[in-house]
């Protein structure tokens, strides 16, 4: 099968989980952070947590896992 060609874009090819805000590859079906399957391409801002135990941002935003997270996710209902 021929590879799918996408229009060039400066955005990284990631989508955001609507439940936890976790950023994953477009091909991922299930969110590795919360197990949700509800994703959106409409997100803004990014937080990368590298040391969840000592990070102030991790404490303040309630993220307790390493990884990439979006700050604003369209249509997110559940707050972190």
């Amino acid at each position: 099968m021929a590879p799918v060609r996408r229009a060039p874009t400066r955005r990284p090819p990631l989508k955001a989980c609507r439940r936890c805000g976790g950023l994953v590859d477009r091909e991922t079906r299930v969110c590795p952070y919360c197990g949700s399957t509800d994703f959106t391409d409409n997100w803004e801002g990014m937080i990368v947590i590298l040391d969840p135990e000592n990070s102030l941002i991790a404490k303040e935003t309630g993220i307790n896992k390493k990884g990439y997270f979006a700050i604003k996710v369209a249509g997110r209902v559940v707050k972190r």
């Binding site: 990284p12 801002g45 990368v48 590298l50 000592n54 941002i57 700050i71």
Partner: peptide, 26 residues
């Protein structure tokens, strides 16, 4: 976003004491 991802990778490879990286929306 691209630079933030480079920083994250570099932190892990070089073992730097970077705790988080924030790219604010606005």
């Amino acid at each position: 976003l691209k630079v933030a991802m480079v920083f994250a990778e570099r932190t892990q490879v070089m073992g730097l004491d970077v705790r988080s990286i924030v790219v604010p929306a606005g």
